[in-house]
Design a protein around this nucleic acid. Structure first.
Length: 912
RNA sequence: GCCGGUGUGGCGAAAUGGCAGACGCACAGGACUUAAAAUCCUGGGACCGUAAAAAGUCGUGUCGGUUCGAGUCCGACCACCGGCACCA
């Protein structure tokens, strides 16, 4: 990939413009009520705030490895749109920040003793330098860093809001904990406190958690993949621990339903729907039978959840999860040893083993029986770890005839299998048939489902169960509450203290709670989190102790898009007016933009990031946002109106980029060799934003050459040759060297020809439409088409070339600014920066052709192309087509059945 | 297994149901140059033709359907990618 001389002096142009933008704060976004300096280019165009456009990137974790070519893909797309919207006249919010809490800095601290703060700052410095070198139009005055106490003060503040709220099922929203009603039977303060603590949105639970010994911390379900930690791939085991949880399950229904009101990709919505996992069914009570039962269990019932109540007559046994609380109560003496051993076995199995060994079912008989409430039959009760304690009621009725898992289990342990569903196709074996069919063998003295299709059978049996008080219709979710504490140092400390075994919130005035200084960042020998090492910090004067867990990395990223709206506010996490303006709920009546289609949308207008956050960050952030919405702190029910996932960039070999494969492309190398504009342009020219696509440095050279052609369109070649001579020998290679380059004599103030206007307006139309549809690759090709044409012009009218640079600016801003400034040298009527120059409008009248080339088909096959006047009517087109010499041989001697004429489009002659 | 996505030249790709392959890469030929690089011009799906053309035939993963007309819509299948996976 050796390249000779530079296509154009991007190495001087790019730093020059980056410095100008920085110094002028060109891309600063203005909040309502802020005074805009009259000299700012925004003020030159707008006298009041126009409608907003909030375009957001997923902020990065600043790793030690630096930027990857995947980062600039999404960042370039959003930057192009930010610049485009500015040109259209919007007030654009386009911020950047750092999701900087996280494990790598902490692991480095454990190894070296260096404070994670230091590592984090170094990494941020590198990331910022790299991002800035690409010329993105971020408003850096709004930069946020989740590890900055001024930031995480508000993360802790939001936690307090969660802690001090409960979810009211009547109103279906969060409310302050003070509104929580207490049942009358609760008398003592202790009882009331327990009741309150059990209803908070942030609560403490003793449930089994995912413990990763290697990482020394617990993980959320979402952070465990195939039984291994998402970070590092270490084994994860289940272990009961006291942990903070967030009651996200209360929002399951709203998180699901509100997906319909936002513009996310179909597949992403599906992923969230699957993760939430709503299923409708029924809870049914099975009384414990006398046979084999211990006296303690008599009179009790086992409640199960099923999505197929229509198969109740086929339930021939029951299974409890090993952790079910009735297990010990019902187990007979004869079986107690076997049950004890099995429970031990199940508890010791890591999630990985459970998954890997899933093919082979295991379980033991408890010795007890329950009564099938519709058949009256006694059915044995087993325990098995294929039934999960954490889903439904932790117990199932097993219908081996029509459930794959129950079928396998029944076969292995010789349990009875009976048919209660007839498949629609009689050729299909009913055994193990799990789809819908017709109920059979499903009747007792009071009710019969026989002959009913599955859906109806479900309805009928559920109604009957409800009437008999044996069960009721129920909805269950796969979604679990969010495990919110980590045994780490480098995270937000909880604003919580413990007093006499109870937790208490610190007052807002105590925020931010800073992590203590430590010499050693490892967990303690007793397995306490690292914060427990700071004894002075942990113990308060009154004897109470601080919570030593920290929040997970997701906490800071749950609300950063809100902090960007008002990043330096010391009095609140976001100002109400700023929030209303940027989130689109306060519409400015003085708007100069009238098109309602492009008016403000509720929430972030466009959010771009990778699919890896499909269920974690995006679900958590939606949840927090809804809580803040319920409590009245934000004005929209959803945070991100439109969301686009950029596709992964693969290495040149078509494999995922990785150090091990040696196919990683470093953006710094691309910038130094081809310049930021070329890298930006290439990342967009590769293909559709959402697609997975392989890197090709050769193709970078292609767009780099295109930028060179643009450059040569505007500059005098002789002076450039002279410049190159000077540049190679000059000691001081500053941007003033560029002054040697003179403009090309072919670009001058001149009347544009109709053909030139047509070329320009075709480009305006295509680029505008493609940007609206996020089709960056074809927009760039339209710019190339324009340049290929313009290169042939003897005279290039300055007005046409200015409009072209306005179109080019979002894609290649440095080059466009430089050429625009040169084109306007000596003129005072032109602005100093392209950033706020209005986007050109295309004039359809200029695109009208006087004659058209029309394809002529015979029986749908292309036979000729004819030239007709653009306004030719059907009869005229028909007669020209029939007269064509190339068409004649195909219609001669045949009967013409029909002629299809589409004006301005085509003629198709159908012959028989 | 379930859900979602994608299959088009040598490669990245483009095409409101209406001229398949825009734009670019790689390649080939030419101009410029002592020469090379860079630049500029020209060519290009395959087959069959031909001195060269023209004409013709085939062609968007496979098979079928709807339609005057299908890369595009419908049905079945195959391959690859991503997600979920004992959730009752």
């Amino acid at each position: 990939m050796s390249i000779g001389r530079k296509q154009y002096p991007f190495d001087l142009i790019e730093p020059k413009w980056q410095a100008i933008w920085d110094q002028q704060q060109t891309f600063r976004a203005w909040n309502p009520g802020e005074t805009i300096p009259p000299a700012h280019p925004f003020a030159r165009r707008h006298s009041s705030l126009p409608p907003k456009y909030y375009v957001l990137d997923m902020f990065p974790y600043p790793s030690g490895a630096g930027l990857h070519v995947g980062h600039p893909e999404g960042y370039t797309a959003t930057d192009i749109l930010a610049r485009y919207r500015r040109a259209l006249g919007y007030n654009v919010l386009h911020p950047m920040g750092w999701d900087a809490f996280g494990l790598p800095a902490e692991q480095y601290a454990v190894k070296t003793g260096q404070h994670p703060r230091q590592t984090t700052e170094q990494n941020i410095t590198t990331f910022k330098r790299q991002i800035k070198s690409l010329g993105f139009s971020y408003d850096w005055t709004r930069e946020v860093d989740t590890t900055d106490p001024d930031y995480f003060k508000w993360t802790q503040w939001i936690f307090l809001k969660l802690y001090n709220s409960w979810f009211n099922p009547e109103t279906n929203k969060a409310e302050p904990i003070e509104t929580l009603p207490y049942p009358l039977e609760l008398k003592s303060e202790e009882e009331k406190r327990n009741h309150r603590d059990n209803h908070r949105l942030a609560y403490v639970s003793e449930a089994p958690v995912n413990w990763c010994p290697e990482l020394g911390t617990v993980l959320a379900n979402e952070e465990v993949i195939d039984g291994k930690s998402e970070v590092g791939g270490f084994p994860v085991i289940r272990k009961p621990m006291r942990q903070w949880m967030l009651r996200i399950t209360a929002y399951a229904e709203r998180l699901l339903n509100d997906l319909e009101n936002i513009e996310w990709s179909h597949s992403l919505k599906e992923m969230q729907r699957n993760w939430i996992g709503r299923s409708e069914g029924a809870e049914v009570d099975f009384p414990i039978a006398e046979r084999g039962a211990r006296s303690a269990a008599l009179g009790g019932v086992i409640r199960v959840f099923t999505t197929r109540p229509d198969t109740l007559f086929g339930a021939t046994y029951m299974v409890l999860s090993p952790e079910h609380k009735l297990v010990n109560e019902i187990t007979t003496d004869a079986q107690s040893e076997a049950v004890r051993k099995y429970k031990e076995f199940a508890a010791g199995r890591s999630d990985l083993e459970r998954t890997e060994l899933a093919k082979e079912k295991t379980g033991v008989f408890t010795g007890a029986y329950a009564i099938n409430p519709v058949t009256g039959q006694q059915v044995p009760i087993w325990i098995a770890d294929y039934v999960l304690a954490s889903y439904g009621t932790g117990a199932i009725m097993a219908v081996p005839g029509h459930d794959t898992r129950d079928f396998e289990f029944a076969q292995k342990f010789n349990l009875p299998i009976i048919q209660v569903v007839q498949p629609p196709d009689p050729k299909i074996d009913w055994q193990g048939f799990v789809d819908e069919g017709t109920a059979v063998n499903s009747a007792n003295r009071e009710i019969s489902l026989n002959g009913l299709p599955t859906a109806e059978a479900k309805r009928k049996i559920t109604a009957w169960l409800e009437q008999k008080r044996l069960g009721k219709k129920t909805i269950n979710y796969k979604l679990r509450d969010w495990l919110f504490s980590r045994q780490r140092y480098w995270g937000e400390p909880f604003p919580i203290i413990w007093k006499n075994g109870h937790h208490e919130a610190l007052p807002e005035s105590a925020l931010p709670v800073l992590p203590p200084a430590l010499d050693d960042y490892k967990p303690t020998a007793e397995g306490q989190p690292p914060l427990a090492r700071a004894k002075d910090w942990v113990t308060l004067p009154d004897g109470s102790t601080r919570e030593t867990n920290t929040m997970p990395q997701w906490a800071g990223s749950c609300w950063y898009y809100l902090r960007f709206l008002d990043a330096r506010n010391p009095n609140g996490f976001v100002d109400r007016q700023a929030e209303g303006y940027w989130m689109g709920t306060e519409i400015n009546p003085k708007s100069e933009i009238r098109n309602p289609k492009s008016g403000p949308t509720p929430g972030v207008d466009l959010y771009v990031g990778g699919t890896e956050h499909a269920v974690l960050h995006l679900l958590y952030a939606r949840f927090w946002h809804k809580v803040l919405f319920d409590l009245g702190y934000v004005s929209t029910p959803e945070p991100f109106f439109k969301l686009v996932n950029q596709g992964l960039i693969l290495g040149e070999d078509g494999q995922k980029m990785s150090k091990a494969r040696g196919n990683v492309v470093n953006p710094d190398d691309m910038v130094s060799e081809y310049g930021a504009d070329a890298l930006r342009l290439y990342e967009m020219f590769m293909g559709p934003l959402q697609d997975v696509k392989p890197w090709s440095t050769k193709n970078v050279e292609g767009v780099y050459r295109f930028l060179g052609r643009v450059w040569r369109l505007f500059v005098d070649e002789q002076s450039e040759t002279d410049f190159e001579q000077t540049a190679t020998t000059a000691a001081n290679k500053g941007p003033e060297l560029l002054n040697q380059i003179r403009p090309s004599a072919t670009v001058r103030e001149a009347e544009a020809t109709p053909a030139q206007l047509k070329t320009l307006h075709a480009a305006i139309k295509k680029v505008t439409e493609d940007l609206d549809g996020l089709r960056f690759n074809t927009a760039i090709s339209a710019l190339m088409v324009f340049v290929n044409e313009a290169i042939t012009w003897e005279v290039k009218p300055a007005s046409v070339m200015r409009d072209f640079l306005t179109l080019l600016q979002p894609f290649a801003p440095h080059l466009a600014e430089e050429l625009f400034a040169r084109l306007n040298a000596g003129r005072t009527d032109q602005p100093a920066t392209l950033a706020y120059v209005p986007w050109p409008k295309y004039d359809p009248a200029l695109l009208v052709e006087s004659t058209l080339e029309i394809p002529v088909q015979v029986n749908g096959k292309l036979r000729d192309r004819i030239i007709v006047p653009a306004d030719a009517n059907q009869a005229q087109m028909e007669s020209v087509a029939l007269a064509s010499d190339k068409v004649k041989p195909f219609i001669e001697g045949k009967a013409i059945k029909k002629i299809i004429v589409l004006p301005k489009k085509l003629v198709n002659i159908v012959v028989g």
